[in-house]
């Protein structure tokens, strides 16, 4: 048995909080364990949305650390809405002036894909919209073929839907050819 017994559960609050990592010695297993956890959030953000690195070069940490601190303060669940809350936070951050519609769409597409991977309900798809991108709908679809994968598409609407609530609205789709609008749902935190 290791001396000074330490288990994962002792570190849970720090596994999502970069600021808490400094509570542990740099050369300790606890520090490395926390680092291992935080790296997955970093990769989840920047591997999927690489254009965010252009906002905070070279390693994105100037963006990552304050985002994670805000997410902890707001108790963001880090579920499929992860990228949408990143986008919402960015709009009120020092990075707001660098945001482009392409980055906003990239973040929406990432959340749609994450929904398609993570949702365990019977719904087949999700539709996302932002009041900042009028008449644009981002759709995420679960994998429906044995040799396929989840799919994301961006639609420009001919017939506008009612404005989506801020920061984003969403609704789920039971089937591919669904043509009724069930109304916007507010983004869960």
């Amino acid at each position: 048995m290791c001396a000074d017994r330490l288990i994962d559960q002792d570190l849970l609050p720090a596994l999502l909080a970069p600021a808490r990592q400094a509570d542990y010695p740099r050369d300790s297993r606890a520090f490395v364990r926390i680092d291992t956890s935080l790296r997955v959030y970093w990769h989840t953000l920047f591997d999927i949305c690489p254009s965010l690195l252009t906002l905070a070069p070279p390693d994105g940490l100037a963006l990552f650390r304050p985002w994670m601190a805000w997410a902890e303060q707001q108790q963001v669940s880090m579920n499929w809405t992860f990228y949408l809350w990143v986008a919402a936070w960015l709009e009120d951050s020092p990075f707001a002036g660098q945001l482009t519609d392409a980055i906003r769409l990239e973040l929406m597409a990432a959340s749609a894909a994450r929904w398609a991977m993570a949702d365990r309900s019977r719904a087949l798809g999700v539709a996302l919209a932002s009041p900042r991108l009028a008449d644009t709908l981002v759709l995420g679809w679960k994998n429906q073929r044995v040799d396929g994968g989840r799919e994301v598409e961006c639609l420009e609407l001919d017939a506008p839907l009612p404005p989506a609530p801020a920061p984003f609205g969403y609704f789920v789709l039971a089937q591919v050819d669904q043509d009724d609008f069930p109304g916007w749902q507010a983004l869960p935190r």
Binding site: D8, Q9, L12, P13, L16, S37, Q75, V76, S77, M78
Partner: peptide, 15 residues
């Protein structure tokens, strides 16, 4: 352990 206080752990933890 998949979450802590309702927040998802992306690197799962040991119970």
């Amino acid at each position: 352990c998949f979450s802590h206080q309702g927040r998802q752990l992306y690197h799962l933890a040991e119970i």
